[in-house]
């Protein structure tokens, strides 16, 4: 654990990334305390303004405070990132473990289904799933979570194949340890590290997917402030006020960038071959 902690604060980039993620979490948790204005409060006399001392990041086409909307938007971003990754781990990892441990027909059936799911381009499939389920934050979580299941399943399966060939697993099988116990007590703890690394990368992808769906108008619907919706609304006023598209885009970019940097740092810290 110490190695991981050291890697997470190894350089300025990692420290900045940690700060970005902590800021996101703080904004998501304490949005009502941090936001200077109500994110839905329109002001017809104060529309499309640039940054000022009153509105630090300016106002949008309805005169709403961009900073407040950005802070509230972090709630959706954080919720979708955590929720969708939780769904994909909950289904993907057990499927991968069972597939890799039992091999044979079980493996073939599960993996062909996963291959079929993998054949669908992720964003297109999530688009269809949200259309099916209806536009809401929880449905976006489900849609994005489902399309990440193959990634976690393949990862868990590949690791399970390696670990289940180890002597200690063979020994456990020889003394008659039940399969579920071997999977839970021997396989899972030994594959947790790459799953944790994939978790951060998965969160980064989920944030991009949520923003894309909201941008297309099929994700979380206005007036709920999300960064994707803000980007889409800002795009309409690109010629008058490019600031409106720049700010939410930068927020998405910084968050995804920070998660990718932390994912790399975690991988280096958790992989014994890269530790030294």
């Amino acid at each position: 654990m110490r190695d991981v902690a050291v890697r997470l604060v190894a350089g300025p980039l990692e420290i900045v990334s940690l700060i970005v993620i902590l800021l996101l979490v703080a904004a998501a948790v304490a949005a009502p305390l941090l936001a200077p204005f109500d994110p839905a409060a329109a002001d017809g006399f104060n529309t499309l303004r640039g940054p000022s001392s009153r509105n630090l990041l300016g106002t949008d086409f309805l005169g709403r405070d961009v900073l407040s909307r950005l802070i509230y938007g972090a709630q959706v971003t954080a919720a979708v990132a955590i929720g969708s990754v939780a769904i994909s781990i909950l289904f993907g990892v057990p499927l991968g473990l069972v597939s890799g441990y039992f091999k044979g027909l079980t493996d073939t059936v599960i993996m062909r289904f996963i291959d079929a799911l993998y054949a669908f381009p992720p964003l297109l499939l999530s688009l269809v799933l949200v259309a099916m389920l209806g536009p809401s934050m929880y449905n976006v979580m489900i849609a994005v979570g489902v399309i990440m299941i193959p990634t976690f399943c393949r990862l868990a399966r590949a690791q399970a194949l390696v670990v289940s060939a180890q002597t200690y697993v063979v020994a456990a099988q020889t003394i008659g340890t039940p399969a579920h116990r071997i999977i839970l007590w021997h396989l899972w703890p030994n594959i947790a590290a790459p799953v944790i690394v994939q978790l951060t990368i998965g969160m980064a992808w989920a944030i991009l997917a949520e923003a894309a769906l909201s941008y297309l108008g099929v994700g979380v619907r206005p007036p709920t402030p999300t960064w994707g919706v803000m980007l889409a609304e800002g795009f309409q006023y690109l010629r008058i006020n490019p600031w409106l598209s720049f700010i939410p885009g930068m927020a998405i970019f910084l968050t995804v960038f920070a998660l990718n940097i932390l994912g790399d740092a975690l991988r280096d810290g958790l992989d014994p071959r890269l530790r030294n």
Binding site: A204, L208, A211, A212, Y215, L231, F235, L238, R239, P242, S245, F246, G249, I252, F253, V256, F257, N260, I261
Partner: peptide, 22 residues
């Protein structure tokens, strides 16, 4: 590479429109 992986393609598209078109 890290920028490319983290940059949402739709945001990059908007920035390109801003610079090269607008």
């Amino acid at each position: 590479a890290m920028f490319g992986i983290s940059m949402p393609d739709f945001w990059l598209g908007i920035l390109l429109i801003l610079v090269f078109s607008v």
